[in-house]
Design a binder for these strands. Structure first.
Lengths: 207, 207, 207, 207
DNA sequence: AATGAATGAGCCTTCATTCAT
DNA sequence: AATGAATGAAGGCTCATTCAT
């Protein structure tokens, strides 16, 4: 009996973890392909090869998988963002680092996040809005709000400022993902310039 | 002249128009609350008090209602935008006018468009993305892309530029709608400043 | 006011009759095309150009139209059959006359009655079984049963005999309608020979 | 040998087979009662006591059940017919054997096949046309057409001949099923006599 | 735990029928 | 009477969830 404790995760535990991972992985891809709303629990388990009922041994609903994926995204991204934040010398530097981290993350995940087309699709349906993508985006947003509130930018209403920044961040990110090859450096430069100096800055840097 | 109105609609015609409106109105609100994908035809009719079958006397599907709403948004907004565009003296002026028109429209519609919560909701589900909202937003987007492509801004890649502008436009718009009172003038000023001069400009104008 | 009485069926009455006829005609064709079960009341009225509600001023249901059509078939066919029956000199003559009349009727109506394919279609669905067709068929059946019962054929069980005769009548009739040109004479000859002398007779007459 | 049965079906497998059977059985009876077209999937499952969704675990549509029933009928009847056919010495013998087999089959199935009323029902709706019945009937029809075409009967147009034969076969079969007790021998004798010698033959054999 | 069939709520849609005009 | 919109009962089907094995 006591062995049970000393022994590393037994076979049972192992498959348990593996199954959980399999489900998350399946969910990730299927969310990316069909969009959160369109996905059914069946879509997810079908892709794992597991039985229907098994799903409920791991998650109570589609929402719960989505939450897990969000957490996953956050867990992976948060430390990166935190590190960059701590190294940042000032507001401008922080923005550059945050966006750089964000775009790098996006590029790595691009198979899910908005892999296909810009948001302006003819009829509704926001593609590629993965739970993870949203979660990571939210991390960035929060950090910007905080930094702005802390007065870093000295530019009036911090919420408005943050709104503008994340607006740029998000849409420029989309543009980036649509292009081939995906150029995170260019995207970061562009977004940062826009944030710091607006069109004026672009003009200057383009000349 | 009198002929035109000589035949009043008649009770029948009247209720028909009213019902159509009721359905559109219900769809509008329910789309705003649940998001396009999550909405069912039943959600829509339930909110009208009409019978299930009645829906199909007016629209053939959820998509068709959405399309009608989009058209509605476009029909109302397009001429306004067009007028502003024609009066614009240069790129900066155009941006100011376009955003001004957009925010005014948004404010008028605020009961539907994102009236409730910011986009940053914890878990998936993009709220407030009404077909109308998307349609109007798309109008703005298209006009900015066009003007940018025409070289107005002289700032590198027009698509990237447009992306940044609409990112700002959209998220600042959201902020605006969340505040009380809704201040379209302030939002326009802020967005325009960000677009033209970025944070630098803000700092200056704030001082 | 008094004029109303002296005048022959006024406009009102006229359209009433015409509408009824229009509905019956529409039903006839649509039954022939889709088969009784598949037909909806809407199918019928749609083909008349009348309004949905109007149908119910004339018939209470699809069944009632079908009944009316049956009656119609009977009303047109019964006298013909009766006449032939009265002129018949003996059983054989009666059979010949009855089938002759039946096939002639069938040929005239062929646009509805089984215009398309034999009954042996792959999967269920008996085509072309018009209410009228069934009614007329039933007339023939009844007359044969009666005559057989009356001892005309002197051949054992009259119901069995009638069954055999109508089996021949019906399927040979189907064959007839499938062929081009439709040859009522040949069909009658064939059926009568089969009934009277079976294959033996055919062999003889073919030689 | 023992291996084959060494693994008993298990409760699960068993109920699965039973449910499938239950559905088929329900479909059989309901088709017989209402006629193929009129039957709804819900009619079928209602009669099984199973839940609505369960139907779709076994069949994808009404058509698929019907096909299964047809196959069933064919699978059971085809070998019997084939055997009789091979043993037949000549056309007359073949006809006798084929009808004998057909009527025997019919009698065994009588609970479904036209158990209730003759075809002459007042208003439309051909009763008792079970998918199985049609399938088996079709077997007989095909065999007769083939044999006739092969020249067995030497009697003019083989399709007309076949039509007459199957007409007799079918309607005499119906008569047989309506009577108590069901007498397959008598039905076979009668039908064969009609086919071979017509009424003439009946008269002779009756005297 | 894993399995996978059963369940039943609920969605979309059609259609017979009613009824105010 | 004619009209045609409104109604609501079904029907086909999907899917989340449960549960016996």
């Amino acid at each position: 009996m006591s062995q049970v404790l000393s022994v590393p995760p037994g076979r049972r535990e192992l498959t348990k973890v593996q199954n959980r991972q399999a489900i998350l992985e399946a969910a990730r891809s299927v969310f990316g392909e069909l969009g959160y709303d369109a996905v059914t629990v069946r879509d997810i388990i079908r892709r794992t090869g597991l039985a229907a009922g098994t799903f409920y041994n791991y998650f109570r609903s589609k929402d719960e998988v989505a939450a897990a994926l969000s957490d996953d995204g956050t867990r992976r991204f948060a430390p990166i963002l935190k590190a960059q934040r701590e190294q940042a010398s000032d507001w401008a530097d922080f923005v550059r680092r945050a966006l750089g981290a964000y775009y790098t993350f996006l590029a790595d995940e691009q198979s899910n996040w908005l892999a296909r087309r810009p948001i302006d699709e003819s009829h509704p349906r926001v593609h590629g809005v993965t739970p993870e993508g949203l979660a990571v985006f939210e991390e960035v947003r929060a950090s910007i709000v905080e930094e702005a509130a802390r007065g870093g930018a000295q530019g009036g209403d911090p919420y408005m400022l943050a709104a503008a920044c994340i607006g740029i961040a998000r849409y420029v990110g989309e543009q980036m993902l649509v292009r081939r090859p995906v150029d995170t450096q260019a995207a970061t430069d562009f977004a940062v310039t826009m944030i710091l100096t607006g069109v004026t800055g672009l003009r200057r840097s383009t000349n």
